[in-house]
Structures are given as C-alpha cells and as structure tokens.
Write a protein that binds this DNA or RNA. Structure first.
Lengths: 111, 111
DNA sequence: TTCTTTTATCGTATATTTGCGATATAAGAT
DNA sequence: ATCTTATATCGCAAATATACGATAAAAGAA
C-alpha cells in the first residue's frame, strides 16, 4: 500500500471521516449511548455494561476522547467521562449540510 | 485477538456502526459528496476526481454499495451510481434519536 | 507503609483495511 | 473478429484496528 492517501483530501472530508470512524464500532456506539443517557458521568460502570475486557473498553474510551467525541477527567482513583455535545452538533451540521440540503435538489434517483 | 465481538451488541448498535464505518474514509466521503451534488449518476468521472487508482476507487464504491449507502446499475459499458437517500434518512433518524433528543435532558456537562 | 480499588498502558496475536498493478469481463466501435 | 473503453476482481504488501492478559500508576483505606 505504500502510503495512506488521506492527506490528499480536504480537511472537511477528513474531519467528517474521522468523526464517522470514531463511531464505526458497536462498542463505541454503546459507550456513547450510555454516556448520553446518564446525566452524571460514568467511569468503570461502562466496563460492567459492555461484553469486553476492561483494557479493551479503556482503549475504546481513549479513541473516543482522541477523536473529540467525549471528554474525560480524573476523579480520585477513578475516571469520569461525558459526551462532548459540541462535537456532535458540528458533525450533525456538516452531515445535514452535505446530505439533507442537497437531497432537495435531487429527488429523482436514477438507479 | 481471538474473535471479533461485534455480534455481542444490539442490531441497532451494529447498524449505526456499519453506516458510520462506510463513511469513515475521506475517499468515501468525497465519493458521496460527488454523488450528492450531481443529479445524474456518475461512473468513472469519480476516478478522475479522486487522487486514487481506478481499482481503489472501485473498491470504495463496492464498500459503499455493500453498506447500502449507494446503489449502482450497469449502463452499457459503464457503471452508474447514485445515493440511496433512504439509508441516509434512516441513519439521520437513528443518530438524532440517540443524541439530539437525549441532549435536551443533558445540558449540564460534567467534565 | 501496605493493601485494595480503579484505570491506563504495554506487549502481542490476529483480523481487517487500504492501496495498487495486473488481469478479467463486458460491451460498443471498427 | 479485433480493438478500444470502462469497470470489476484478484493477489499481494503494508498499515491499522481489535482484543486481551499482564503490568503500571494513582489514590484512598487499613
């Protein structure tokens, strides 16, 4: 494969793709769901709820955090995570701009 | 790694993840963008527009088609693709249901 | 200090993705 | 029938992702 060509695309394309990539695993969807449902931030409770090892869950949390979908802070001996709603709003806007608006001018599908 | 545990999650979680996975590469975002912008379906024009080899683009198109985000049909010696708006509507609904509605009850972020 | 609890990180095995050239396939053109 | 054009598929190399056990780190409890 030589080199990954992701840099050859626009920043917006890469941003959208990165956001989507962060959501591209059911475990991460499940984590986001839990964080979205609870008003208080969750820590190791997530591990209890998922059918995965603690280290694996921790890795998924790190990916979500790196991608900016959640934020986390240390709270004594445990960690506290919650959703970064701003990132979701941004994604939602980008997504709708790209597809919902264009859809109007594009009713007649051809294949 | 032993086994992938994706089956251990709900169907909805898997569906959302699969949709997101299809969008998780800038080349595929770019393809969707082109298809969304043109009223008529595009074929090899996409190859011209992307900084990738023809075989690579063909592979990305196949992935998008398999995931249900686009549909394609043979048109003489060339192939015609277009967006499957229904799939986007479904994803948009799922996504908004999961996040936008919950957001209302969740204004106070904690970390 | 030592023990316990909670979470992050390391190392590693395996699976999947990405990318391309080469080749196959399919259909219209000559 | 042969040539050309357009697209899909195969085979392979390299990069990433997924998962887990083991271990480290950090902080409160005994």
């Amino acid at each position: 494969m030589a080199i990954h060509k992701k840099e050859a695309f626009t920043q917006k394309e890469q941003d959208l793709a990165n956001f989507a990539k962060a959501m591209s695993h059911p475990a991460r969807i499940a984590i986001l769901k839990v964080l979205a449902q609870r008003n208080e931030c969750i820590c190791g409770e997530i591990v209890e709820l998922l059918p995965l090892a603690q280290s694996t869950v921790s890795q998924h949390l790190k990916e979500l955090k790196t991608a900016g979908l959640i934020s986390g802070s240390i709270d004594g001996p445990r960690s506290c995570y919650c959703i970064n709603w701003k990132a979701f709003e941004k994604f939602s806007n980008e997504f709708n701009y790209l597809f919902n608006k264009l859809k109007v001018n594009n009713e007649k599908a051809c294949c």
